[in-house]
Amino acid sequence: MKALRRLFAAGTDRELPVPAAPGTPLAEAAALSVRLGGRQVLDAVDLTARAGEVVALVGPNGAGKSTLLAALAADLPAGSGEIRIGGRPAGSWSPPELALRRAVLPQSATLSFPFPVEDVVRMGRAPWAGTAAEDEDDAAVAAAMEATEVTRFAARPFSALSGGERARVALARVLAQRAPLLLLDEPTAALDLRHQELVLRICRERAAAGDAVVVVLHDLGLAAAYADRAVVLRDGRIAAAGPPAEVFTGALLGEVYRQPVEVFPHPRTGVPLVVPERKR
């Protein structure tokens, strides 16, 4: 049966991704501008995500974080400028080839039919059907479910889960895809404290294993603790980019978020803590 499927898939020629050396750019946006509904959502944005690093996209609502992520995922045509994925223009890959190179976690996870959790996670393996990596399917699914702590409800229908559990299942699906570029849109939004930390630890591990991770975050503390680089967006432009310790200053964040903040180092680790200025 498997041999038969491979025979069928052999007709669809796909170029498999090769492991990238640390530091290789896996996703690049160059002078990227995007207009949506008559509004300039992104304006001349430059961003590179390299193998082995975690890049956090932060900024106020409507700054263009999700749009930038969607553009990096090759979901949106660039108005002007260029998107490169895996070293080639995004448009030159076929959809199956792109699926081997980047995995995307959408902001909200929906499902039209009540598939059980394990089947949902297994959908992440679809791009590898008909390749040698198909043999890793079971292992990849099991590892992804364990990492996100969803193994316990593997047999439950997705529709019966809580918001946070759904978010973790969606993440497990993305991890199971084992693409070298991970684009995560607010993976921590619905999660409790423990699982927020868990998700960011997973991001670090994937980076350590040689993947590039771009993650949209609202929690600046998480971004400061786990990201190699933080990119602060404001009104579709990059206001600042660099290591969180350099970028996260009271002056910059206060201005970008239009909310005065205090930034001070954690007494033990020295990681910047960002707290809004409060009266008392």
Partner: peptide
């Protein structure tokens, strides 16, 4: 690409999952 076992701290009921393959079968 990674096949790392993520060092997820074991919680009360997150064991290895012998049931999954059974369910599929």
């Amino acid at each position: 690409m990674t096949a790392t076992a993520y060092d997820a701290p074991a919680t009360e009921d997150d064991g290895p999952d012998p049931g999954a393959t059974d369910t599929r079968n």
